[in-house]
Design a binder for these strands. Structure first.
Length: 340
DNA sequence: AAGATCAGCAACCGCCAATAC
DNA sequence: TGTATTGGCGGTTGCTGATCT
């Protein structure tokens, strides 16, 4: 790879292919608080776009691309940060199955998440599992494992969390165990996830070639996903990530104000300020249902082989964060043997 | 306690399509 | 119409903190 500089935080460029005086001064590597403030302030006053000239006008010794990336992936007020939730994991798995590595497209359906974040999630978590299982992440074997084992397991955990919340709220009774039974049945273009929660209530959702439909939707009661959210349909002219969510939560000027006050209050002690914390609340109001239903017919599975066996996950005893424990790897092994 | 290894993620790169001139 | 610039995307790198030995 061509090396034009080093990635040190306070380095200037050690250039091997210098083309102009300006390039000699270009900074690279982690952004400083001052740079972030300069970028935030400039965008607050002038808006975004025309990134090269923006970088110059704002007095930033960065490329336009670098400024754009910093803004979109970090400084933008509506960037949602923190752990990828179970619902988001499920959605990522499903959408990746549908579109592959179309990260920006997938990101459109996870409001506040950036394509970079989703890509990192996939590479660090999902590909890790494939590696552990010694199979290619794009292999049928692994895709089937995701579809028949991992995704149902996620559904189970989602409903368990929802049931636990409900139970605690209702009577303060013991929290839910992961004893629910999940079955998946496929009939032509419809896949049905069916399970009983801890209150012995039957829950299910169906995934058609069209939209996902929910019956008795305990799954939707997760407190992380309530309220409403509007998204930009994929066929919209403003479907790009920068436009889809650019200004819908809070004006940039507010971000700048809050950010300034936070910095002056000494709450930023590193090079990675987190202004979005002020807007996290807005994103905690997102609707999972809104995320997974769309005019374009989202959340439909690829056609499956007929006579797909029902899979009972009741004896898959994973209650930890990781799915691929020894038991499940054995299960995966058996599953693979039966489907090769 | 110290070095090695791993995991997560911010940031960069090259390529390409869209837009401006 | 051709060229330059800009923006968007997917792939990759390397820094940093956590964990392991």
């Amino acid at each position: 790879m061509e090396v034009k500089g080093i990635r040190a935080s306070n380095s200037t460029t050690t250039t091997t292919t210098i083309q102009s005086e300006d390039e000699m001064d270009l900074r690279r590597g982690p952004w400083t608080v001052d740079e972030d403030l300069a970028l935030i302030n400039y965008i607050a006053n002038h808006g975004e776009g025309r990134w090269n000239s923006l970088a110059r006008s704002a007095g930033l010794k960065r490329t336009g691309k670098s400024c754009r990336l910093r803004w979109l992936n970090y400084l933008r007020p509506d960037v949602r940060r923190g752990n990828i939730t179970l619902e988001e994991q499920l959605l990522i798995l499903e959408l990746h199955g549908r579109w592959g590595n179309r990260w920006s497209k997938i990101a459109q359906y996870l409001p506040g998440r950036t394509d970079n974040e989703i890509k990192n999630y996939w590479r660090t978590r999902v590909q890790k599992h494939a590696k552990q299982l010694k199979c290619d992440v794009n292999s049928k074997q692994f895709k089937d494992a995701m579809r028949y084992l991992w995704m149902p397991r996620l559904v189970e955990r989602i409903q368990a969390a929802a049931a636990a919340t409900t139970t605690v709220a209702a009577a303060g009774s013991p929290t839910a165990s992961a004893s629910a039974t999940t079955t998946i049945t496929t009939n032509n273009n419809t896949t049905t996830y069916n399970y009983y929660d801890n209150n012995n209530l039957n829950n299910s959702f169906e995934v058609h070639s069209g939209n996902m439909m929910v019956r008795n939707p305990t799954i939707m009661n997760n407190n992380n996903f309530c309220g409403s959210h509007s998204y930009t349909p994929e066929n919209s002219s403003t479907g790009a990530s920068s436009d889809s969510f650019g200004t819908q939560v809070s004006p940039v000027s507010d971000l700048t104000q809050d950010y300034y006050s936070n910095v002056t209050a000494g709450n930023n002690n590193n090079n990675n300020p987190n202004p979005d914390q002020y807007y996290q609340q807005a994103h905690d109001q997102l609707s999972f249902l809104d995320c997974i239903t769309s005019p374009s017919g989202l959340f439909d599975f690829q056609p499956m082989e007929p006579n797909t066996p029902w899979i009972n996950l009741s004896n898959v005893g994973d209650t930890s964060n990781g799915f691929w424990n020894v038991e499940n790897m054995l299960l995966f092994q058996q599953f693979s043997d039966n489907n090769m």
